[in-house]
Simulated assay, not measured.
Amino acid sequence: MGQFAATRPFAHVIQDLFVTTEPPKPISYNSARFLLSAAQLSDCPPDSGREVAFAGRSNAGKSSAINCITTNGKLARTSKTPGRTRLINFFSLNRENCRLVDLPGYGYAKVSRDMKDDWQQHLSHYLTERRSLAGLVLVMDIRHPLTDFDQMMVEWCEHNNLPLMILATKADKLKFGQAKTALLGIKSALKDVQCLQHLIMFSATAKTGLEDCRNGLTQWLEG
């Protein structure tokens, strides 16, 4: 005892008994707040922590899905002009260094070919070089799934071993049996895709699949 006290003062021993490690805060998606917009990789926040990105063809319901997940109808811009969002938009969460990322839409934007090529280049840089990217949420319209863009994103995730979640959105536009059949069709088409971790029937209007989506996001963000 005397030897222990000499090397480890008794007051320090008592102090250590009462020192507790504060557990990290549970992630609250309602806490999401706009952080910044980036036109290119160099404009993005510091590449630390973990973030999950959302991608989707224009008019697939990506902004509505993000707004539903965060219970903030104005967080991600929705527009009657699909493809209007041309920047990489970052949203902070209540846990430090955890972010959601809204990637530019693709498809119907009425812009020049040079601008579209520019978007694709910066998007490619982000997806290829962003070390804090923990997973990709691919939003596709359940009525028109697996477009060329969707297939490209699935193949990219598979090639780069990036965890993938698919939200089959606008499920409320179909009868349940039709939506279920469509979901099974997507599952069958992607049966050999190893990176696909979550395939969720989703409706921002009816909140279908909301908790499953949040649980998958939390799994990725908590690492």
Score class of each variant (00 low, 15 high):
Ala60Tyr: 05
Asn59Thr: 02
Met165Arg: 07
Thr169Phe: 06
Thr208Trp: 12
Lys110Gln: 15
Lys207Val: 01
Lys180Arg: 14
Gly49Asp: 00
Leu136Pro: 00
Ala171Tyr: 02
Asn94Gly: 14
Ser42Pro: 00
Val101Phe: 05
Leu35Trp: 05
Ile14Asn: 10
Thr78Arg: 12
Lys80Phe: 11
His144Arg: 15
His12Ile: 12
Val137Arg: 01
Asn97Tyr: 07
Asp114Asn: 13
Ala11Thr: 11
Gly73Lys: 15
Leu41Trp: 04
Leu36Arg: 15
Ala39Tyr: 04
Pro45Val: 01
Gln219Ser: 15
Asp114Pro: 01
Ser132Lys: 03
Leu93Gly: 06
Thr205Met: 12
Glu129His: 11
Gly83Phe: 05
Cys68Phe: 04
Arg84Glu: 08
Thr70His: 09
Asp117Trp: 01
Thr81Glu: 11
Asp141Trp: 07
His198Gly: 06
Val19Ala: 15
Arg214Gln: 15
Ser79Met: 05
Lys191Gln: 15
Gln178Pro: 03
Leu164Trp: 06
Tyr126Gly: 05
Glu158Thr: 00
Phe202Ile: 03
Ser203Pro: 04
Thr205Trp: 11
Thr85Cys: 05
Asn161Gly: 03
Leu100Glu: 06
Leu100Met: 08
Ala60Trp: 00
Lys191Cys: 12
Phe18Lys: 12
Ala38Gly: 09
Ser37His: 03
Met140His: 02
Ala109Leu: 04
Trp220Phe: 13
Asp212Asn: 15
Glu155Thr: 03
Gln3Lys: 15
Pro23Trp: 06
Thr208Val: 14
Ile142Thr: 02
Ile200Ser: 05
Asp118Ser: 12
Leu103Ser: 03
Val19Glu: 15
Asn97Thr: 06
Ala76Lys: 10
Gly223Met: 10
Asn94Ala: 13
Phe90Leu: 02
Thr20Asn: 14
Tyr106Thr: 03
Asp117Gly: 06
Gln194Gly: 09
Trp220Pro: 02
Pro45Trp: 05
Ser58Arg: 02
Cys157Pro: 04
Lys62Arg: 06
Thr78Glu: 09
Arg84Gln: 13
Pro163Val: 02
Ala65Leu: 05
Val137Glu: 00
Lys80Leu: 11
Tyr126His: 07
Pro104Thr: 00
Asn59Pro: 04
Phe4Leu: 15
Leu127Gly: 01
Tyr29Cys: 08
Gly61Ala: 04
Ala53Gly: 04
Ala53Ile: 02
Ala168Gly: 09
Ile69Gly: 09
